[in-house]
Each structure stands twice: as C-alpha cells, then as structure tokens.
C-alpha cells in the first residue's frame, strides 16, 4: 500500500477530466465537490480544482492544469476536522492530517529548505471549498468513507490468538463453567508439566493465583488425585 499523499494524473480521455477509478475492485465515486482549492503543508493554496471523494480515497484534480492532481487513501488520513477559526487558517476549510512513513534521518525542514515538494512527506492538507456552507456535509462524507476503510488485518492479531487459545484450553480441561476459578488454580501443575511454547504464555497469569488462599486446597486436591 502506498502511504501518504501522491500524484494522481489518471483522467478519463473523454474530455470531462474525471479521474479513473479502480472500479473493477469496487471503488465507487461517493461525492464530487467542484471549486475546491488545496493547500499542502504550509504551502500556498493551489488554484481551484475539483475534489472527488471515492470509497477508497480523496482525489483533487486541478481545473486548469490537466497534468496536476493529488490523491490520498482514507487509510492514510489520521484525522480530519472542520476549521472555521480565521486565526488558525485564513479560509474555512477541511483540515486533514496525513500519516507518513517515519523517516528519522530527515525532518520536515529539509523538504522546505530545498523547495522540492516531496508528496509522501506532506503531513497536512487543507481543502478549501469556495462554498463554505458545504464544510459540514464534506466532514460527514469523510467520516462515512473513513469507516469504509478499516485497517487491513495484520499479524499482530496472532499474538492475541495464542493467548485466547490457552484460555480455551483451560476451559476444556476443567469442564463445568461454574468452577472456572477452580480450573485456574488447578491447572498450574499440568501447564508447567507439559510446557511448550504456546502454553507457556499462560504461565504469568496462572502464577498470580499462587498467593490465592484457594491455592492450598487445590494443592491437596491434586495430591489426592494422584
């Protein structure tokens, strides 16, 4: 996945200048807002263009320069807000923060000193519609589209899976649900005895039970069973 802001120049060839969407993969156009200016980072506003909001991303296309356009996936938009305070920004706008790849070696000042526009490093974008009464509508559409784009499932999930797996195992050994407390107290012997990678994860939690007053009883029961 491309992180952050990028150039976008894919326009239909029919003269309408509309963006080409990834329709085969389900990308849909949700909203079109004409007469929108854009400001990237601290840079000045760029001449009015048209904002296309799709189910995947924001696309801003210049109305004058057909070769000019930007796009950013909703996955990369960390935050969006309506800004109306003239002290914060001269024109009422939709303010967005964009998630960028962390790059420790370079800070933002480098980009500015060289004057080169490095799109993937842009952290803020302001969208200024000429009709500011549309801001709340745009805000709501942004919210809706953000919710259409949850994080892709990552491996992180697996860590959690192992943990739940151990808990399930304990339940299976014990049987009766009412006696869940008992199962936890009893199982240290079996878990420690057959320790493998996965079951080991359950140990820290089980050790917490050792000072429990029920521990003594559990110990006796285990002896009895042997």
């Amino acid at each position: 996945m491309v992180v952050g802001l990028r150039e976008f120049t894919l326009r239909t060839g029919d003269g309408s200048g509309k963006p080409i969407l990834d329709e085969p993969n389900g990308e849909e156009l949700m909203h079109v807002q004409s007469s929108v200016a854009v400001a990237l980072g601290n840079r000045p506003l760029e001449s009015p263009g048209t904002l296309y909001i799709t189910s995947r991303k924001l696309i801003w296309l210049s109305d004058v320069d057909m070769a000019k356009g930007y796009a950013v996936d909703f996955l990369s938009i960390s935050l969006h807000a309506v800004s109306r305070d003239p002290e914060a920004y001269s024109s009422p706008c939709i303010y967005t923060q964009i998630d960028v790849e962390e790059d420790e070696d370079e800070d933002e000042s480098d980009t500015e000193s060289t004057g080169v526009l490095d799109l993937p490093k842009i952290r803020e974008m302001r969208l200024v519609p000429s009709d500011s009464s549309q801001l709340d509508t745009l805000f709501d559409i942004f919210c809706e589209c953000a919710e259409l784009n949850p994080e892709p499932i990552e491996e992180e999930e697996e860590g959690g899976h192992n943990w739940v797996f151990s808990a399930d195992q304990m339940d299976v050994r014990g049987g009766g649900e009412e006696d869940a407390e008992w199962q936890i107290s009893q199982s240290p012997t079996s878990v420690i005895g057959h320790s493998n990678g996965e079951e080991g994860l359950a140990q820290p939690m089980l050790e917490l039970q050792i000072s429990d007053q029920r521990f003594e009883d559990a110990e006796e029961m285990v002896h009895d069973q042997k």
Partner: peptide, 15 residues
C-alpha cells in the same frame, strides 16, 4: 501552534 482551533474532529482509530 498551527493546529486546529476546530470544534469537532474525526480521529482514525488506528492512529
């Protein structure tokens, strides 16, 4: 200092 004196905002859960 540049950051919003905005009334409301939407924050992506993953950030």
């Amino acid at each position: 200092p540049h950051m919003l004196s905005v009334r409301n905002c939407f924050i992506r859960g993953s950030v």
